[in-house]
């Protein structure tokens, strides 16, 4: 039990997908202009990362490894991720059309989010069991969502601040992202204790 908790804390905070591994930076800068869009994107990405990681683990364990097809891993995982996004889109549409009208806009963007592929490749490299791989993917995506929401909150306040003209918009956003990454570096001390 303790090892799973440590694995999740490590994936979410210490080795954060965005601020430590620098994955998913496109959505990090593009979808964080408002908190509500960040929440929508974060939740959708959490679902897709977890589901696609479960499928990727199964594909790796039952197809690629036994038949020595490791060289096809990246291509296969991209296919699995695209299928997972389609599955999610169809499922949300079937479960509730009003929910799909509200949340469907985020789903196509996730297909091209490198964080999804990055997490899948990391868990395969880690040689984890199925439950550990799923918890690792879930915690990684929770860390992703957490950073998205924090950064969106900061940017909403930045939009109201009197920023010098040269720094207004993305430049001050990048500076704040750097400071946020420095703050998250504080969690790396936890791994040595």
């Amino acid at each position: 039990m303790k090892e799973y908790i440590l694995l999740m804390v490590s994936a979410a905070l210490v080795n954060n997908v965005i601020l430590a591994r620098f994955l998913g930076l496109c959505s990090f800068m593009g979808v964080t202009t408002r908190i509500d869009t960040a929440v929508g994107m974060g939740m959708a990405t959490t679902f897709v990362i977890t589901v696609s990681s479960m499928a990727d683990w199964a594909v790796q364990a039952y197809l690629l490894e036994p038949y020595h097809l490791g060289y096809l891993r990246t291509v296969t995982f991209i296919l699995v991720i695209a299928a997972a996004v389609q599955f999610t889109e169809l499922t949300v549409k079937k479960v509730s059309p009003p929910l799909f009208q509200m949340l469907g806009i985020y789903l196509p963007l996730i297909t091209t989010n490198c964080a999804v592929l990055g997490v899948a490749l990391l868990l395969v490299e880690g040689n984890m069991s199925f439950i550990a791989a799923t918890l690792f993917a879930f915690a990684s995506s929770i860390g992703y969502s957490l950073v998205m929401v924090i950064f969106a909150g900061l940017r909403e306040r930045l939009a109201l601040a009197d920023v010098p003209r040269l720094f207004a918009g993305p430049p001050i956003g990048f500076i704040v992202a750097g400071l946020l990454a420095l703050a998250f570096m504080g969690f790396s001390g936890m791994s040595t204790n």
């Binding site: 509500d36 939740m43 679902f47 799923t134 918890l135 879930f138």
Partner: peptide, 27 residues
């Protein structure tokens, strides 16, 4: 317009409920 918390409620309904039940049953 929609209320801001409606988007959060919708996200939790569509994604958090299935993920929670999947993780609990898997654990």
């Amino acid at each position: 317009g929609i209320r801001e918390n409606a988007l959060v409620k919708a996200s939790l309904t569509a994604y958090a409920i299935p993920l929670t039940t999947a993780l609990i049953s898997g654990a």
